[in-house]
Nucleic acid binder design. Structure first.
Length: 135
DNA sequence: GCCAACGTTGGC
DNA sequence: GCCAACGTTGGC
């Protein structure tokens, strides 16, 4: 099972919104690198949910419930979407500053390439972030 | 609000 | 096919 991180501006769609909705279509990705990661997602993969612009922290865990399909919001039919479901909030948000300060996360893809909206997370990185998010 | 990073577009 | 110009994202 693979692990991922997705970014969302909470003003547009927050983790609380995902919890309320239960699941959602993760569409609107218009970046080839991010789209490749979407295509690689499998049902059951787990996803860190990061709030960009406001919050700047990983706030919860989501799960992949539907694998890549053509993004209905892309008229050109070039990009794909998946469906994500809320799993649980982290007991404590893990901020970007904390992640940057952790040497074990130096190679985290979302730190190395800040603009990437969907990125892979290695098993050790996943474990480290969850540990930081314990109460 | 500014700026860095990076992807995309378009002229040649 | 190269590369400058431009647009977007996202942290600060």
């Amino acid at each position: 099972m693979a692990h991922w991180l997705v970014k969302s501006e909470p003003a547009k769609y927050s983790f609380e919104d995902l919890q309320r909705d239960g699941r959602t279509v993760w569409d609107g990705v218009r970046n080839n690198a991010a789209a490749l990661h979407l295509k690689a997602m499998k049902v059951g993969d787990e996803v860190l949910y990061y709030h960009s612009q406001e919050g700047l922290a990983v706030v919860g865990i989501a799960g992949v419930v539907k694998e890549a399909f053509l993004d209905p919001s892309d008229p050109a039919g070039r990009f794909v979407a998946v469906e994500l479901a809320a799993v649980k909030p982290l007991p404590r948000p893990v901020t970007l500053a904390e992640m940057k300060a952790n040497p074990g996360l130096a190679s985290l893809e979302m730190i190395r390439q800040g603009r990437l909206s969907v990125s892979p997370v290695r098993a050790a990185e996943w474990a480290a972030i969850l540990k930081m998010g314990e109460g």
